[in-house]
Design a protein around this nucleic acid. Structure first.
Lengths: 360, 360
DNA sequence: TAATTATATAGAATCGTTTCAATAAAATGA
DNA sequence: TCATTTTATTGAAACGATTCTATATAATTA
């Protein structure tokens, strides 16, 4: 009995298959992985090995495989708040693109908390994920997280935020163009007195959208009334933002400075603005049109449904995956790869909340 | 030069730390893992090893670790549609509970598709996740998936659906009690003529909720008008359900059979029912109260905000994690463990959409 | 003092793959 | 026919940790 009989409790290994088929573990490995050398192996041998593997229900041990190959076909995905509807569609896009490539995501949620972010980052690196996708939102921890990331050297992409880094990729939507188009939409409906609830100054996307607004105003000589412009504060907690939007809309109304349309930083802001308007007795869209940005799921369900600028969230998720997949492949072949900065177009989705300005 | 100098390109291994500290790899391992034998190792040795590890930035190779220990501190999480707001809060609960235990989730989304479910299941087993959490929804693939699961022998829990299996755990909400309480809420507000848009008969939760309704009606001698009861069809696609709910509410209205309240199978149904009511000119809650079930995020934001029965989703996610963690621990110690069936209580959340029945 | 136990460390085996290097037979070319 | 190439297969060496077993000294007990 030269080979030890395989112990009943243990799982079947490649050596069991070798013994069963009458070939060596090497040959089994070559056949089952269809390695280059497999072209020297005659068909009958192949079938015998495959049959043996099937018969024993052989499932290669992924730990051993990973140990050799240093790969695990896994990427880390970090969100800052999975409760945020903005996230889930991006997640869908990520998931779908990873599925195509037979990768699986490790999902982590930083809860908008810096410590948790760092702990999770550590856990992901410890597990040697092959890539990292970060979905930025609202509050993104500041820049020194980059230090940790860059030195780790794993392909990383941030979705939803532009970065000046040369080693971290990013996928963003065309904020400026989207805001430009949104304002153009309102303008096209005849609106001239327009109120704005802009995002926090600290956010790049907020600045970009404002830039788009200004550019449109400049292009068409539309006058922007400074009294009708509010900025959301730079807050740590995103859900407080909802209340802020509500309050600011109330403030805008209390000024008694008439406006026929309101453009909000994003959909959550717009939704809360609508609530404030409705509560104050201002009918949307009859008396005031409202436009948002993002097109989160709720926006279509709302009454009235919200006109908004759609971010192609699934596409952004997919783009993020493709960017890091390129990085991962380059890495596997020891090639150099450069970080990519992708910008995707957005599109105005007209719904019930905007309407032709009433004749006066 | 007895030891080969460590190659510059490669990562630092335990042997590098051994060489640097002047001890053997064995000792390094014992110290760094604080293994039982560590109590024989004097403090100075320990610090020298720890310093060396820190100096070299040693990070143990998790693949090698897993190969020995057969563990990876990872669980598979399967959802059927991450876009479904019902999922995300449960996911939050899962994520949070796993974080406490230093586990990480592999997230998969079956897209309500059976093939995808099976492919993902295969991928998760291949990766040897230590446990499996399935968030059932709306349409859950039928029972023969159990065969695959049971034979794999990994601890599994299904959240949101009761199962007759003895080897698969489940976490559910008290559907019957919740529906009972919801109807009691309407009854308490004086409603007697109540319409129902029930869930698909095929769903256990749907049947349970209906049972709660019947029990309440029986207890209080409330009469249920069969003409005011509709069942959502058993569909494959969950989003079609939204349109169904809208239509059924229209049908209920067209009958001209008065009702002062409508109880919906779940929040999505309720939201669409409200849309239909509003569109038809029926004011909610002035003319008709509406109550849902689930308490998804959108419900609080809606105008009017939706009264509903809250499922403790985060708690359900956490409970699911705890169940499989017990299974995983039992397994690690080669103990037997029995599947657990947990049922969590629900609670009525009164909001704007329900109101005292108008005097007539 | 001798026998025993506790302390401190290391060598080698193991986990299950993949792959390098070796070998032998068969097919080809000169 | 002999040298070379192609085909077919394998033993052994990685991959990087943990742990079993062995060993040597120091401390304790009889």
């Amino acid at each position: 009995m030269p080979y030890p009989k395989r112990r009943p409790g243990s799982t079947t290994t490649i050596r069991d298959v070798a013994e069963e088929s009458g070939f060596s573990a090497t040959t089994v490995s070559i056949v089952l992985n269809n390695a280059p050398l497999a072209r020297y192996i005659p068909a009958p041998t192949k079938t015998r090995i495959q049959d043996a593997a099937k018969k024993l229900g052989y499932r290669p041990n992924i730990f051993a495989k990973s140990l050799r190959s240093k790969r695990n076909h896994t990427v880390g995905v970090m969100v800052f708040d999975i409760t945020d509807p903005y996230c889930t569609l991006i997640l869908r896009g990520i998931e779908n693109a990873l599925y195509q490539a037979s990768f699986l995501p490790m999902l982590t949620d930083a809860h908008n908390d810096r410590n948790r972010f760092e702990r999770y980052l550590e856990m992901l690196l410890e597990r040697r994920v092959e890539g990292l996708i970060i979905i930025a939102n609202w509050v993104l921890i500041d820049i020194n997280l980059l230090a940790d990331l860059e030195k780790s050297g794993i392909p990383t992409v941030i979705i939803g935020r532009e970065l000046e880094s040369k080693s971290i990729s990013s996928v963003t939507v065309d904020d400026e163009g989207g805001a430009y188009a949104a304002l153009a939409h309102l303008y096209g409906l005849g609106h001239r007195k327009i109120a704005f609830v802009c995002g926090p100054k600290g956010l790049m996307s907020s600045r970009k959208r404002w830039k788009g607004i200004q550019r449109f105003a400049h292009d068409t000589k539309l006058e922007l009334d400074p009294k009708l412009i509010r900025d959301l504060p730079d807050r740590l907690s995103p859900h407080l933002g909802a209340e802020d939007a509500y309050q600011m809309t109330e403030e805008l109304l209390q000024q008694k400075r008439p406006f026929t349309a309101l453009m909000a930083y994003d959909d959550m802001t717009a939704l809360n603005a609508m609530r404030a308007l409705t509560t104050a007795g201002v009918k949307v869209p009859a008396q005031c049109s409202v436009i948002g940005f993002d097109d989160i799921a709720t926006s279509a369900l709302f009454v009235p449904s919200l006109t908004t600028v759609r971010q192609p969230m699934e596409a952004m998720g997919a783009a993020g995956v493709n960017v890091i997949l390129e990085g991962i492949n380059a890495r596997a072949e020891n090639k150099q790869f450069a970080a990519a900065q992708r910008k995707l177009p957005s599109e105005v989705v007209p719904r019930e909340s905007t309407r032709q300005v009433p004749q006066s």
